[in-house]
Design a binder for these strands. Structure first.
Lengths: 115, 115
DNA sequence: TCCTTGTATGCATATATGCGCATACCTTTA
DNA sequence: TAAAGGTATGCGCATATATGCATACAAGGA
């Protein structure tokens, strides 16, 4: 029973995942967690952001199911739930790189100030 | 010469691409364009959105370099610039599907109203 | 040149997002 | 149980985003 509204609901969830990636700080957080699961405050320190900002970003990522956490003593360790998120980010970064490169090539070829 | 601020700038561009995907309507637009490049108003009609909304979404996608357009008579044909965007979307949708499935499995196993 | 079709945009508005600050909350340990 | 480390959150604010409506623009045909 696939209704149009069901499709739309899934598309909204799809967009929710994308919007979780739509912030520079969260992107940095995700790559950092890929390297090393860690707790809120050390993450905040590493990335040079406030503790509250880190907490909120992680909370959002948890709500979206992209990050999960387990208690370890007095701190809470956060980790990625699915490496495919990183794969997707890498793909998108590759797209970005291609664009930057071709733009650079244009500048090379056309010295008369592009646009 | 890789400065921290350069890294940050790239991360911001990375996030810009992600945020282009962070809207249900735009996701539908991208999948529709993958199937068939098309002009603003037919896209609007197919997706059941207003012409102005379609125009603005396409404009944003163009600014981000995800969509490009060429004039064809009186209409403007829009098309994807890079199929990897779709790959990334598919990856993220797969992540979503996994989560929905495992959540469903939990409901199966645990009939005492989850959470 | 005027009209039609197709597209972009200014305006107003409702909503969402990110952040710092201060503070409340939860665990563990002394 | 009190103190300390670590985490979450209410509040206020500045900013960004999405949308409809009406309208300005652009290109092709009569």
């Amino acid at each position: 029973m696939i209704t149009p509204s069901l499709t739309q609901e899934i598309t909204e969830l799809h967009a929710d995942i994308c919007s979780a990636l739509a912030d520079p700080t969260r992107i940095l957080i995700l790559y950092a967690l890929k390297e090393k699961p860690s707790n809120v405050s050390s993450l905040a320190e590493v990335l040079g952001i406030s503790q509250s900002a880190a907490s909120r970003h992680l909370n959002l990522l948890r709500e979206r199911g992209i990050v999960d956490s387990r208690r370890d003593g007095q701190s809470v360790i956060n980790y990625l739930t699915d490496e495919r998120i990183i794969e997707a980010l890498d793909l998108l970064r590759a797209v970005l790189t291609s664009k930057l490169k071709s733009r650079a090539a244009l500048v090379e070829a056309e010295p008369k100030s592009g646009q």
